[in-house]
Simulated assay, not measured.
Amino acid sequence: MSRFQSLVSTKWLFECISNSNASSKLRILDSTFHLPKANRDAYGEFKQKHIPGAQFFSITDCCDHSSEYEHMLPKPQDFAKYVGDLGINNDTHVIVYDASDGYGFFSAQRAWWMFHVFGHEQVSVLNGGFKKWCEDGYATSNIIEKVKKDTFIPKFREELVKSFEDIERNLNEKSFQVIDARGSDRFNGTGPEPRPGIKPGHIPSAKNIPYGTVVDKTAGTLKSPEELKEMFVSSGIDLEQPLVASCGSGVSACVLSFAAFQLGKTVPVYDGAWVEWYLRSTPEQRANCPEDTV
């Protein structure tokens, strides 16, 4: 991934929106996604209130609908049509944000990663998300503007995506480290998974860094590079060695990939994540899984 400006402030975005020349080159996307147990309607909330000019990017619509797993990456041509319908071409600067309770560090990074996977590096995450935008006193809107469809040409980057087979081989080869972005209770097998039929636990030898750890709770923004480095290192991660991010279903893993990106490191994501791993692996390939230890 290139070192394109990947993180922008609410002030920066406000100034761009206020500048007609700058705003014409932007496409703002609300990529809010809520876990099933939240019982919230992301698109319904978007229709009520969003950053002026924003379009809605649904990771549950822009996905591989033929897969048995949730919001897996779509085919390149399907991604191209989806974002083209949102008025995005290969020269568009895309700004992604979400309205999660975690200061916009949850599903926005999934959208950021997806654009990178399909070869679009001109994409930035709004630091602090919609929550900080509102806290900073900037205007919101309930008007969904019509946009002119455009043409986006995808360039799939397979090196940014890991499969079940990649992770399985790595159990023996140990060619990369695995970090898991789920909460520690789910990782350690002591708390429930949010999806029916899935038990908690983790991939053997994986390290746990809950995705919320990346946030400076006082400022409501991403931690500094120095703090992010300490976060990885204190969790037993060697930043000089290859690293792959995982989570429950491929969303919050992208938060850790994004955090590592701030340190100049490219971190692929295991798209199927724990849900796929749990359903396809053998008991010997799962650690701290309750049903495997009874």
Rank of each mutant, 00 (worst) to 15 (best):
E276D: 08
D136G: 06
P196Y: 05
L228T: 09
P36E: 03
G272L: 09
Y43G: 03
V269T: 04
N208I: 10
L160D: 04
G129A: 12
W113I: 04
S235N: 15
P194H: 07
L7G: 02
G183Y: 04
I143A: 06
P52Y: 01
V83E: 08
E226F: 12
R3M: 14
W274V: 05
Q55H: 04
Q109I: 00
E45H: 03
K155C: 12
E168V: 10
A206L: 06
A139K: 10
V147E: 02
G264N: 11
E284S: 13
Y69M: 03
T92H: 07
W12A: 08
T10F: 09
T221K: 09
Y211I: 04
G191C: 11
W274N: 02
F156N: 00
L86W: 04
A80W: 02
E226W: 06
V96D: 11
G129W: 02
W112R: 04
E145I: 04
K217V: 15
D101G: 15
K217G: 01
S281I: 12
G128C: 12
R280F: 09
Y103E: 05
V147I: 14
I95K: 00
K229H: 10
T221E: 10
S58K: 06
E240W: 01
D292Y: 10
I167V: 15
A181P: 04
V267M: 06
K25N: 13
E230Q: 14
P200A: 13
M114K: 01
K229N: 09
R182H: 08
H71I: 03
E291W: 03
A245V: 03
A206F: 09
E15N: 15
G84P: 12
T92P: 07
G44P: 07
V215S: 08
Y138E: 01
T213L: 06
T151Y: 12
Q5M: 13
R3N: 14
V275Q: 10
G201C: 13
V269A: 08
T140C: 15
N39Q: 15
D78T: 08
M72L: 11
L35W: 10
E159D: 14
N90C: 15
F115Q: 03
V161Y: 05
Q109L: 12
L279A: 12
